[in-house]
Design a protein around this nucleic acid. Sequence first.
DNA 1: AGTAAAATCACCCGAAAGTATGAGCTTGAA
DNA 2: TTCAAGCTCATACTTTCGGGTGATTTTACT
Lengths: 160, 160
Amino acid sequence: MANKTNFFIRNKNSILYGLILALLLFLMKWLELRYVVINHSFEIYAGAIAIIFTALGIWLALKLTKPKTSTIVVEKPVFIQKEDAFVLNKKEVERLGLSNRELEVLTLLAEGLSNQEIAQRLFVSLNTIKTHTSNIFEKLAVKRRMQAVELAKSLQLIPQ
Amino acid sequence: MANKTNFFIRNKNSILYGLILALLLFLMKWLELRYVVINHSFEIYAGAIAIIFTALGIWLALKLTKPKTSTIVVEKPVFIQKEDAFVLNKKEVERLGLSNRELEVLTLLAEGLSNQEIAQRLFVSLNTIKTHTSNIFEKLAVKRRMQAVELAKSLQLIPQ
DNA sequence: AGTAAAATCACCCGAAAGTATGAGCTTGAA
DNA sequence: TTCAAGCTCATACTTTCGGGTGATTTTACT
């Protein structure tokens, strides 16, 4: 880090205040030699110094406390669509009495595959898939594959 | 509000500091009468006052300034997963060359309705709906109604 | 070993979906 | 007026879907 080179820059304010302080003292010394001190009591002089330097101290403190308040950031990230990890609604699965294989078929159904394609995908016969789909429709109480998929998605049986 | 009754309580600190200030001045006056001032130069005395009251001012300022606002970064993830107002993706509609009627049929298709039901809903014949669906599948380059609905949803052609 | 649930497969039949082709009608723009 | 696009409808045909029934095999559990 370049601490040494930055020293005067970073302490610029402190140095400046020190100079002002010295200047003020010098000014008072000069005033003392003239007409002020001679004619007034010492208490007034001391009180003036106290007041002035109290004010200076307050001013210094207020100015020098630089990390006054770091900005409070209120973040409001708004996610419109959430594609987070799919969690199976096991309660509904159990309630409907759907088997694992039926859920599997349901998933492929949702992909828009035909029964024939599903059969090939699962290495079983077309008739098997037809039996599965029939059972699925029965358990879901729907008439068509489209409705089955819609219902399954809304019930969190298959990923959206 | 009970401003009057709370005055002394609220300004307790200020009053205390004022008393301390007076006490310090009195202490200095007492010291002056004794051995300090007599034997030392006035500059030293003034300097001491300046330093003490500068420190006092700083201390006052730090104490009196309201408690530093602590920096708190609050993260609030807000999930708006429900379907906000559906906006039609007109660009895609135009690109695919879909007519209004076809979009209408597509919407009903997504509800899981059969061709016959769609026909009754739109007061047209079954054959008309079959023509529409065929054209839709052609334009969307899909083979089945399920795939058409999936694609239409992902392209924002119909509400989710 | 016995049993119940799940998974597999087959056959039939009717309904629905999808393909292909042609055509009438309306409307808005060139 | 002509023309293109959109909407409508029809006929014919093929494919897929869905319902119903029955049967065998696998798996898991008692």
